[in-house]
C-alpha cells in the first residue's frame, strides 16, 4: 500500500515539473558549451597579449659594475648557531679565568689575613663587641693611642710657634682652594 502511495506522489511531482520547470538554462546552452570551452582553452594556451609581447625581456635594473665578476660567497657567515655559542662560551671562560689568574693580589690584604690568623678567638670577639672590652684591653688601647701623641709633641717641641702658625695657615688656604675649585 505504502509503495503504491509513494509511487503516486513521485509520479505527480514529475508531471508537475514537466508542466512548470523550476530551473532554466539559456537557449542552446548545452549545444554551444563545447565550442565555448575550446575557445577558452585556446585563449589560455595562446596568451594573446600584444602589448606584453612587444616589450623586450631585458631587465631595466642596473647592477654595480663588475658585480658578477667580483661575486664571492662569504663563507665566513657559515657558522652554526651551536658552534657560535660554543666559541662565545669559550671566550667568556678564557676571559674570566685570565682575569682571575693574572690580577695580582694586594700584599696588604694577605698581610691582614695573616695578622687576623694570629689573633685568639677571645681577641676577635672583643673586636667585634668593643663595649665588652676588659679594662686591661682598654689600657692597651689607650696606651697605643697615646704613643703617637707623645711622639708628635716631641717632634714639634723644637719648632717655633710662628712657623707652626704659618704652616697651618698655608695648609688651610690650600684646602680652601681645593674646595673652591
Amino acid at each position: 500500500m505504502k509503495e503504491d502511495a509513494s509511487y503516486n506522489i513521485l509520479d505527480r511531482i514529475r508531471q508537475e515539473q514537466q508542466l512548470n520547470p523550476g530551473f532554466t538554462v539559456p537557449d542552446n546552452y548545452f549545444e554551444s558549451l563545447p565550442g565555448r570551452l575550446m575557445a577558452a582553452i585556446r585563449e589560455t594556451d595562446t596568451d594573446n597579449t600584444p602589448v606584453l609581447d612587444g616589450i623586450s625581456r631585458i631587465m631595466p635594473y642596473h647592477v654595480p659594475q663588475y658585480y658578477f665578476a667580483r661575486l664571492r660567497v662569504n663563507r665566513a657567515r657559515v657558522v652554526d648557531f651551536k658552534k657560535g655559542l660554543t666559541i662565545a662560551a669559550s671566550f667568556i671562560l678564557l676571559a674570566v679565568s685570565s682575569i682571575f689568574l693574572l690580577t695580582p693580589r694586594s700584599p696588604a690584604s694577605t698581610a691582614g689575613v695573616a695578622t687576623v690568623n694570629e689573633l685568639t678567638n677571645e681577641q676577635l670577639e672583643r673586636f667585634i663587641q668593643p663595649d665588652e672590652a676588659t679594662p686591661r684591653d682598654k689600657a692597651i688601647t689607650t696606651h697605643a693611642v697615646k704613643i703617637p701623641n707623645t711622639d708628635m709633641a716631641t717632634l714639634l717641641k723644637n719648632v717655633p710657634d710662628a712657623e707652626l702658625t704659618n704652616f697651618l695657615n698655608e695648609t688651610a688656604e690650600g684646602t680652601e682652594e681645593i674646595f673652591l675649585n
Binding site: 606584453l52 612587444g54 616589450i55 623586450s56 631595466p60 635594473y61 642596473h62
Partner: peptide
C-alpha cells in the same frame, strides 16, 4: 631607482 624612467615601457612593465 636612480635609473627609473617612467616613459620607458620596460619600467612600466616592472
Amino acid at each position: 631607482d636612480p635609473y627609473f624612467d617612467a616613459a620607458k615601457i620596460e619600467w612600466k612593465l616592472q
